[in-house]
Design a protein around this nucleic acid. Structure first.
Length: 723
RNA sequence: GCGCGGUUAGCUCAGUUGGUAGAGCGUCCCCUUGACGUGGGGAAGGCCACAGGUUCGAAUCCUGUAUCGCGCACCA
C-alpha cells in the first residue's frame, strides 16, 4: 500500500464479517468485568464519586424467546447505558426476567396437556411447579444468551428474577407492610373470573372481542310493570332490582316499589331503584340489575344496598332453578329461558346486536363476573405515613408535578385518565405458579407474616399473587430491599425506565405506587416509552400469526450492530415502527463502510498521527456535530442522534473528506501531514460517537488502531464531556 | 361514548423552541477512479389530508372537517 508505513491488520483486508467478530467482542467486554460499575471504579475508568446512572431492565417474560420488541428495548437501553458509561457515570443496567405467572403456567399446562393429556390436577401442585421451573430455567438461559448476542452491556453479576428468593422476601415484606397499614384487605367482591383458566384476572388481562348477540326485551312476569332488555337472560334469575334513571318520566312513579316474581321457576324479589348510571335511551331505559354477575350492577347494588345472590358458579354453570336449568351451562340455560319467555308470552322483542365480549387474554375463556373472596389493594385509603395521601394520589402526584417525565409527553393524559378510572386492585390469583400469599388461616384466626406462624394446624392461603405485584417492586427489589443495601442507597431512585407504552398501566404506574409508598421516593425520573415493532405489513408480530422476525436470525445474517441501527434510526419514541430487512441490510453495508474507511486511514497514516491530535476547520466542524448529537443523547432523541452520526460518517466524512484527502495525501508535504492527523483525530471521535449504537464493529476497529494507552472503547470517554 | 395519536417524495418514516421541506429503500442516467461495487457521481419525484384563523412568516401554534389507527369505558 502506498506508504507501507503501518502493517494493516489482516482482518481489514476482507470485508467486515460480524459473525466472526461479535461473539469475540462480547466475550472481551464480559471478561473485562466493565459492565459492572464496581469494576469500572476498581479499574479506574469511573471515578468513585461519579454520579450514578441506573436503568432497571424491564424483565422479559420467561415464557419464550426474545422477539423484535425485546431487540428494540435492548438496543435503546444499551445505547443509553453505553453513552452514560462513556460520559463517566457510575452506570448500572440491571438485567432480569419475569416469572409472568399466568402466562407461564398456562403455557406449560397447555404443553403438558398436548403431550401427555394430563391436567394440572392430574400432576398436582408440586409436580406442576417442578415442570414450570424447568421450563423457565431453560428459557431464562436462552434469553440471557440472546441478550448477549444483541450486545447488551448489562451487569450480569446483579441479574434478578421476579420469583427468586430475594425477590420473594421483598414481596412478602411488602404484602405484610400493606396488610398492616390496612391497604391490603380480603373481601368478597365481584371479580373477573376466567372459567377456562379457573382464576381471577385483572381488568388489563381482558381482551374485548366484538361478537354478534341477540338482545331480548321482555318482562319478568305478566304483572310486572316494566320491561327490560338483556343479551343474557339466564342471569336474570339473579336479579334483585330494576334500575331506572331518576329523571325518566316513564318510570318515576315506580321508584321504590317492590315486586315478587316467579321467573322461569325461580322466585325473585325486584325493587325499583333510581340510578344515574342508567341510560334512558338504551333499550327500554330500564336496567335489570344482576349484582353478582355484572360489574356495573354490583356498583348499583352498593349504592342501593341490594342483595347479591350468586346464580352462576366457577364453571359458568347455573346454580339455581329447577332441572330445566340447574347445573346447565349459561349458554344452554339461555336457550331454555328464552323458550320459557316465549311460551309465557313475555318476550316482546328479539334483535341482533353486536357486543363486546370479555375474554381472558391468556386462555381465551369468556370472562364471567362473579363474587369471590379475594385479596385487594385499596387505592383510595388515606395512608398515615404518607401524609394521608391515597395510593392513587401517590401515583398521580409525581407525574403531575413533573418529578417524573414521560416521553413522549402526550402519554401524561392517558396516564391520568387511567388513574381516574382505577378501582381496587385484585391481587390474588387461583394459580400455583407465583408468589404464594403470605397469609395463614386456623379456623377463624388469620395471620399475615413473612414466615409461617408457629403452632399447629395453620394453613397457608392457596392462592398466589398477581405477577404485577412482584414486578411493581422491581426498581428496588433488584437492589436488595427490604435490606438497606449499599446498592439501594447508591442506585435508587433509578434514572430511566424504558419500556413499551402498552404496559404503562400494568407496570409503570404500579412501580410508582410501590416506590412512593414503601420508600417515599420516585422510582425513576424519566419514563421513555417505545412503540410496537410491526412486520412489513404493519401487523403486530406474534407467535400466533407466525410473522415474527427472529432478532437472532437478523444478528447472524447482518450483525447485531446493523439490527440495532435499523431499529433505532428514525424511530421516534412512542411511535410504532415496521421492521424492514432492506433497512437492516443498509446498515450492514454501513458496517462495511466504516470498516473500509478505517482501512483507508490506516493505510495512509502512522502511529504518531493517532497520538497527536489536531485542531482545524474540519475537526471543529465535527465538534459541532458531536455537540449536537450529545444534546440529542441527553434529551433521549436517539432516533436523531443515530441518523446524524450515520449521515456524517458516510456522506460527509467518507464521501467528501476522505475523497478530497486522496489528493492532499498524494501531494504530501506539511499539508499532507496535517491531513493525516486530521483524519485520525476525527475518526477516533466518530468511533466513540457511534459506539453506543454500533458497539461491536466500533470496538473491533478500535482494537486495531495504534492509539497509545487505550482501554476498551466502551469505557473510553465520550468526545464531549460538558452538557 | 370519553380520550390519544397519525395523515409529509412510489414505499417506510424523520423534521427538537414557527424562518417557504429531509433520510433510507425504490426508480432513471453515468462511472470496472488504488478504502469500500456491501461502492461512487448525478437526476426525477412533495399545493407537508382538507378548510379557516393567529403571525412579517405555519408541515410546525389555534379552531373545525375528513380519514386511518390506538387506549379506556361500555349497551344492560
Amino acid at each position: 500500500m502506498n506508504n507501507g508505513e503501518s502493517d494493516i491488520d489482516a482482518r481489514l483486508l476482507k470485508p467486515y464479517d460480524p459473525s466472526s467478530t461479535e461473539n469475540r467482542i462480547y466475550k472481551l467486554w464480559e471478561e473485562s468485568g466493565l459492565f459492572s460499575p464496581d469494576i469500572c471504579i476498581e479499574k479506574g475508568v469511573t471515578r468513585p464519586d461519579a454520579k450514578p446512572f441506573t436503568i432497571m431492565m424491564p424483565p422479559p417474560n420467561a415464557t419464550g424467546v426474545l422477539h423484535m420488541g425485546h431487540a428494540l428495548f435492548l438496543s435503546i437501553e444499551d445505547i443509553m447505558t453505553r453513552y452514560k458509561r462513556m460520559r463517566g457515570y457510575k452506570t448500572l443496567w440491571l438485567p432480569g426476567t419475569d416469572h409472568a405467572a399466568i402466562a407461564t403456567q398456562s403455557k406449560v399446562e397447555k404443553d403438558i396437556y398436548k403431550k401427555e393429556g394430563k391436567s394440572r390436577h392430574d400432576l398436582g401442585r408440586e409436580e406442576l411447579l417442578k415442570r414450570i421451573n424447568e421450563f423457565v430455567e431453560s428459557n431464562r438461559s436462552t434469553m440471557q444468551s440472546q441478550m448477549r448476542i444483541m450486545g447488551a452491556s448489562c451487569d450480569w453479576s446483579r441479574e434478578a428474577f421476579t420469583l427468586d428468593e430475594k425477590r420473594n422476601v421483598a414481596v412478602k415484606t411488602m404484602f405484610k407492610k400493606m396488610y398492616d397499614d390496612g391497604l391490603i384487605y380480603r373481601g368478597n367482591r365481584i371479580v373477573n373470573w376466567d372459567p377456562k383458566g379457573q382464576t381471577t384476572i385483572a381488568d388489563d388481562e381482558i381482551v374485548y372481542e366484538e361478537r354478534k348477540a341477540k338482545l331480548y326485551t321482555f318482562k319478568y312476569s305478566k304483572d310486572f310493570p316494566i320491561s327490560i332488555s338483556t343479551t343474557r337472560p339466564e342471569t336474570k334469575v339473579g336479579d334483585t332490582a330494576v334500575a331506572v334513571h331518576p329523571d325518566d318520566p316513564r318510570y318515576k312513579k315506580f321508584i321504590g316499589k317492590e315486586y315478587d316474581c316467579e321467573f322461569c321457576g325461580v322466585a325473585i324479589h325486584i325493587k325499583i331503584v333510581a340510578d344515574v348510571a342508567v341510560e334512558k335511551d338504551f333499550g327500554t331505559g330500564a336496567l335489570g340489575v344482576t349484582p353478582a354477575h355484572s360489574m356495573t350492577d354490583w356498583e348499583i347494588a352498593d349504592r342501593h344496598d341490594l342483595p347479591r345472590p350468586q346464580v352462576i358458579n366457577e364453571f359458568a354453570k347455573m346454580m339455581v332453578g329447577d332441572e330445566s336449568i340447574l347445573g346447565k351451562k349459561t349458554t344452554e340455560a339461555r336457550e331454555v329461558i328464552v323458550e320459557w319467555l316465549k311460551s309465557e308470552g313475555l318476550l316482546l322483542k328479539e334483535e341482533d346486536v353486536s357486543q363486546n365480549v370479555s375474554t381472558a387474554e391468556r386462555t381465551g375463556g369468556i370472562v364471567e363476573p362473579l363474587p369471590k373472596l379475594q385479596w385487594f389493594i385499596d387505592v383510595n385509603k388515606p395512608i398515615k405515613a404518607r401524609g394521608g395521601k391515597t395510593l392513587k394520589e401517590l401515583m398521580r402526584e409525581p407525574v403531575e408535578k413533573s418529578e417524573i417525565k414521560i416521553i413522549p409527553d402526550y402519554f401524561n393524559k392517558t396516564y391520568f385518565h387511567w388513574i381516574d378510572n382505577l378501582r381496587d386492585w385484585c391481587i390474588s390469583r387461583q394459580i400455583w405458579y407465583g408468589h404464594r400469599i403470605p397469609v395463614w388461616y386456623r379456623g377463624e384466626e388469620i395471620y399475615c407474616g413473612t414466615e409461617a406462624p408457629s403452632g399447629e394446624n395453620w394453613e397457608q392461603d392457596p392462592d398466589t399473587l398477581d405477577t404485577w405485584f412482584s414486578s411493581s417492586l422491581w426498581t428496588f427489589s433488584t437492589l436488595g430491599w427490604p435490606e438497606v443495601t449499599k446498592d439501594l442507597e447508591m442506585y435508587h431512585s433509578t434514572d430511566v425506565l424504558e419500556t413499551g407504552y402498552e404496559i404503562l398501566f400494568f407496570w409503570v404506574a404500579r412501580m410508582i405506587l410501590m416506590s412512593e409508598y414503601a420508600l417515599g421516593e420516585i422510582p425513576f425520573h424519566t419514563i421513555y416509552l417505545h412503540g410496537t415493532v410491526r412486520d412489513g405489513k404493519g401487523e403486530k408480530m406474534s407467535k400466533s400469526l407466525g410473522n415474527g422476525i427472529d432478532p437472532i436470525y437478523i444478528a447472524e445474517k447482518y450483525g447485531a450492530d446493523a439490527g440495532r441501527m435499523a431499529l433505532v434510526v428514525g424511530t421516534a419514541p412512542g411511535t410504532d415502527s415496521k421492521i424492514d430487512e432492506n433497512k437492516i441490510k443498509g446498515y450492514k453495508n454501513f458496517s462495511n463502510k466504516i470498516w473500509n474507511i478505517t482501512r483507508f486511514i490506516l493505510d495512509n497514516t502512522n502511529e504518531k498521527d493517532w497520538n497527536n491530535s489536531t485542531k482545524n476547520e474540519l475537526t471543529e466542524e465535527f465538534v459541532k456535530i458531536s455537540e449536537d448529537i450529545t444534546s440529542d443523547m441527553e434529551n433521549y432523541r436517539f432516533h436523531l442522534a443515530s441518523e446524524k452520526i450515520y449521515q456524517y460518517i458516510w456522506h460527509r466524512f467518507a464521501d467528501e473528506i476522505v475523497e478530497e484527502s486522496k489528493e492532499i495525501l498524494k501531494a504530501g508535504g506539511e499539508k499532507g501531514e496535517e491531513r493525516k492527523r486530521t483524519l485520525a483525530t476525527i475518526w477516533v471521535d466518530c468511533l466513540k460517537t457511534l459506539h453506543p449504537f454500533m458497539p461491536f464493529v466500533t470496538e473491533e476497529i478500535w482494537s486495531m488502531l495504534p492509539v497509545e494507552d487505550k482501554n476498551l472503547l466502551m469505557v473510553t470517554p465520550w468526545p464531549i464531556q460538558n452538557d
